[in-house]
Design a protein around this nucleic acid. Structure first.
Length: 571
RNA sequence: GGGCGCGUGGCCUAGCCAGGAUAUGGCAGCAGCCUCCUAAGCUGCAAAUCAGGGGUUCGAAUCCCCUCGCGCUCGCCA
């Protein structure tokens, strides 16, 4: 229980008591005014009718009845609002004590014993990751970090699509496309190299009937469970995936588990799902193909059918996805799926079908809109794609120029290290800072932003704090509110105390875009403090101020790391 | 056509779920600040019919309805 939670409870309790003694037991709101006129406020307008008094009169009356005790240090009545102020001394003492004692665990909750699986990325392994889909790993990884902080036992997972025409085509291409037909096949990264085979195979299939025949035959053998074909496809996908993993590693995203779609064909569980669904009263059949009629499950549109077998009885992607989710729920209490907005209907159908199967858990989908270019959608065919590798490379080289400009004193190696972390950070930050469901248009100048609301801003503030502490040498941790009376210091403490509740919002409500926002607010408060208040030359206040700087360093680092970025000690 | 989502200063964005007091920040622009702890910073100025209309309410960016614009979707693809 933080001081802020305590404060809110106290306000609720006191107002309730006061209203009861006036013979009123209606509910009331406690809000945090955005304008900063108070720490918490109770609007008295809704009470006017029942108490038959003007809101201002009610606020005046309540003000006299509510004592200033504990964390409440002042109560005011303004414009029909009852305004409450938190005791700054208590806030400062408790917050700094908590941070210095808990360090990197400040804001972290004890283990809840709840397993949460976060499935993200799961990009079709037919080519490199492009920025249109780059939100997926970044959102998923950030959410996983937030959930861990909240005490969940988190496992991240990539569901690898190694079934179907696309991957068969890739595999065929790798074996049959002559090297001479492939431009730049010597690209060193597997995904960039292999995508050429995939593209050439695609056009060969379109133009050549014989090729089309070969692919169809291969696909058929795959469906029949031909082990040779299945393992060949899987090998091809493994190679491609190696390239994707390099990209993910570079942006600090690692997945705990890779689950292969073919598994659900091999172990018979997809067939099992088919058998169970066929017994459902919602099941229908047309020409041998089976479907569920989902009109009653809130599915709208022309076609409310969810087909789960083909005419020939083979399973579909969605059937395998059902088997996959049933399996996931055997090993996790909750399953979060980070999905592109094109999966909305599919996800709704999946949830309905799981209900029909009697599954008691529901996956929690989290959708993001695709990133597009100013001239429209990214398209591999039109060649209008920006790859994530390209974006990161560009950001890192921009960052390198910036470090070089400012820090001639650093070694070449150190400059490279800093540039890497700053460039990658800028890319991740610019993607998480906006609400996932909001559409993003990719512009190099925005993606390369190193000023203001950006990762380097947070990293820079952290480096500044580290620099002060480095120069200070030894000091004794001093939490003393009488030595930190400046308004900049108070604002900074207020920002520090917000961290736990911001994480709560990010984790429990999956509103991860609030974390960059908070980071910026905190770093900004620190930079203002830095500009206005001397630390190293502040006489008797020195230890207290160094303690405050130390607390900032800790919370900035916690924020930066929860965002999946690296907190630099110099830059 | 149906469903879902989005529309906030020139540009990007928070607030919308749980309606409240002068709408949050950033970029770009303009004017300042390095004899002091990193100027990737700080200070100030300027800039918004919260897409449009109607409704509910003491009160609407926020809730409801309609309209417009944009995105996604409506496969025996994955």
């Amino acid at each position: 229980m933080t001081v802020r939670d305590d404060f809110r409870q106290e306000v609720e309790r006191r107002v309730k008591e006061a209203l009861n003694s006036l013979g009123c037991d209606s509910a009331f709101e406690v809000e945090a005014p955005s304008s900063g006129v108070a720490d918490l406020a109770v609007p008295c307008f809704p009470l006017a009718k029942e108490l038959r008094k003007a809101p201002q009169a009610i606020a005046d009356e309540l003000r006299e009845m509510v004592p200033c005790e504990g964390p409440i240090c002042a109560v005011e009545s303004v414009n029909g609002y009852l305004n409450f102020f938190i005791d700054q001394d208590v806030l400062l003492r408790e917050t700094l004590k908590e941070i210095t004692e808990r360090g990197e665990d400040y804001g972290r909750l004890p283990a809840k014993g709840v397993k949460v699986n976060v499935e993200h990325t799961s990009i079709n392994p037919t080519g490199p990751i492009h920025v249109g889909r780059a939100r997926n790993p970044i959102i998923g990884d950030t959410l996983a970090r937030c959930l861990s902080y909240r005490g969940y036992d988190v496992e991240t997972e990539y569901y690898v699509n190694d079934v179907g025409k696309q991957v068969v085509l890739l595999t065929w291409g790798m074996r049959n496309v002559p090297a001479s037909a492939v431009e730049a096949a010597e690209a060193d990264k597997a995904d960039h190299r292999l995508v050429h085979y995939y593209r050439v195979a695609n056009s060969m299939m379109e133009d050549d009937e014989a090729v089309r025949g070969e692919i169809t035959a291969m696909l058929q053998r795959f469906e029949e469970g031909d082990e040779d074909v299945i393992s060949t496809v899987r090998e091809a996908v493994e190679v491609m995936l190696g390239g994707l993993r390099q990209t993910l590693d570079r942006i600090n995203v690692t997945l705990d588990r890779y689950t292969w779609e073919s598994q659900f064909i091999a172990d018979g569980s997809a067939k099992d799902v088919v058998a169970r669904l066929k017994r459902s009263p919602y099941c229908g059949e047309e020409g041998g193909a089976h479907h569920l009629e989902l009109k009653e499950f809130g599915i709208h549109g022309k076609n409310t059918r969810f087909t789960f077998t083909r005419r020939d009885g083979t399973t579909l992607y969605t059937t395998r996805d059902l088997a996959y989710h049933l399996e996931k729920f055997r090993r996790a209490d909750r399953a979060v799926d980070v999905l592109g907005e094109d999966q909305k209907l599919g996800s709704q159908q999946l949830i309905a079908a799981l209900e029909i199967l009697g599954c008691e858990s529901k996956p929690e989908p989290m959708f993001y809109s695709f990133v597009s270019l100013p001239e429209g959608k990214m398209s591999t065919r039109r060649g209008t794609v920006v790859h994530l590798d390209e974006l990161v490379e560009e950001a890192v080289s921009r960052a390198y120029q910036e470090v070089r400009k400012r820090r001639e004193d650093l070694s070449e190696e150190r400059m490279r290290e800093i540039a890497e972390v700053v460039g990658v950070g800028a890319v991740r930050y610019n993607i998480v800072r906006v609400q996932p469901e909001k559409r993003m248009v990719f512009r190099w100048e925005d993606a390369m932003n190193f000023d203001g609301n950006s990762a380097p801003f947070l990293q820079y503030s952290h480096a500044r704090a580290c620099s002060i502490l480095r120069k200070a040498g030894d000091f004794s941790l001093t939490v003393d509110e009488t030595l930190l009376s400046d308004e900049y210091e108070r604002r900074l403490v207020a920002a520090l105390s917000l961290f736990p509740e911001v994480l709560r919002d990010c984790g429990e409500n999956k509103r991860i875009h609030m974390l960059p926002s908070y980071g910026h607010e905190l770093a900004s408060a620190f930079n203002q403090f830095y500009a206005a208040v001397p630390v190293l030359s502040s006489g008797e206040r020195r230890d207290a101020r160094l303690t405050l700087v130390e607390c900032c360093r800790i919370v900035l680092r916690n924020t930066i790391e929860t965002l999946g970025l690296v907190a630099l000690e110099e830059m």
